[in-house]
Amino acid sequence: MESFYLLDAVFAQNCGQSRASRQPIASYIVGGLEANPGDYPWQVGLIESGYLICGGTYVNGNAAGSVKVVTAAHCLSGKNPNPNNYRVVFGMHITTDSTGRVIAQVTGVSKHEQYNSNTFSNDIAVLDFTIGSSDLSSTFASPACLPSRSYYSGEAVVVSGWGTTSEGGSSSSVLRYVWKQMISLAECETTGNAGNLDQSMLCAGEAGKDACQGDSGGPLVAARSGCWELVGVVSWGFGCGRDNYPGVYADAFHLKNWTLSKI
């Protein structure tokens, strides 16, 4: 059985399908409840040197049957990361259980050309693989849809990951999730995040509900018109779940044209 060390740090649609509830439930990654296997089948784990360092989102590529992953640029080392250093796990629920999952070698990395490691502006990247969707048929892995529109303030969204369950705490071996609400950038500028935001970012959350260390690069999704769409990519925040410090994500709709050019 292969396991990884965690760093604290047939459907009507061909994407966005899950058996997870589309209604908010009071649970959260920081100290929260566990997801059920297959609830968030687009969730992947990004591995570097045997360590699960970040999350990511499985999406369809432009070519039929192609597999791509969207993650955060800050999860990848250097301006031109070596794809040989990274693998991705599809269909994983428990990090210590190898049942029903596929581990794929990354063959190409595209980091946003305007990514700024100081400000986390344009914090997005796309990973390439030689495997196709048929190679994942033995797993519950399936892609999320790219966003059809921008978000609105108050929209219900879900973030998931294997990150720490409290600020400075231990990582979870089981996938967890949290329902949050979107916050407009104008409103977010009135919080502790003021002065650190730009149009490539969005904010979501409230005190006690947040992603945390190890969740970076993972999906923030919303249920829209019968399918789950990628709204944001876990990017940065001051602590985890602190009052007046909502989590900050790369805005998947704002960055959609760039993403489409890379998949």
Score class of each variant (00 low, 15 high):
Met1Arg: 08
Asp8Gly: 00
Gln17Asn: 00
Ser18Asn: 04
Arg19Leu: 12
Ile29Asp: 07
Ile29Phe: 09
Val30Gln: 12
Asn36Pro: 01
Glu48Gly: 11
Ile53Glu: 07
Cys54Leu: 11
Val59Trp: 09
Val59Leu: 06
Asn62His: 13
Ala63Phe: 03
Ser66Lys: 02
Lys68Glu: 04
Val70Asp: 04
Val70Ala: 08
Ala73Tyr: 07
Cys75Phe: 06
Gly78Arg: 01
Lys79Met: 14
Val88Ile: 05
Val88Trp: 00
Gly91Met: 01
Gly91Trp: 04
Ser98Asn: 15
Ser98Pro: 15
Thr107Ala: 12
Thr107Val: 14
His112Gly: 02
Gln114Glu: 08
Thr119Pro: 14
Asn122Ile: 12
Asp123Thr: 12
Ala125Asp: 04
Leu136Phe: 03
Ser137Arg: 14
Cys145Ser: 13
Leu146Cys: 04
Ala156Cys: 05
Ser166Asn: 05
Gly168Ile: 09
Leu175Ser: 03
Arg176Asn: 06
Tyr177Phe: 14
Lys180Pro: 09
Asn193His: 08
Ala194Thr: 08
Leu197Asn: 06
Gln199Glu: 15
Asp210Leu: 02
Ala211Thr: 14
Gly214Asn: 05
Ala223Met: 07
Ala223Gly: 13
Ser225Pro: 06
Trp228Gly: 03
Gly232Cys: 07
Val234Thr: 15
Ser235Ile: 11
Ser235Asp: 12
Ser235Asn: 09
Ala250Met: 02
Asp251Leu: 12
Asp251Arg: 12
Ser261Arg: 12
Ser261Met: 07
Lys262Pro: 15
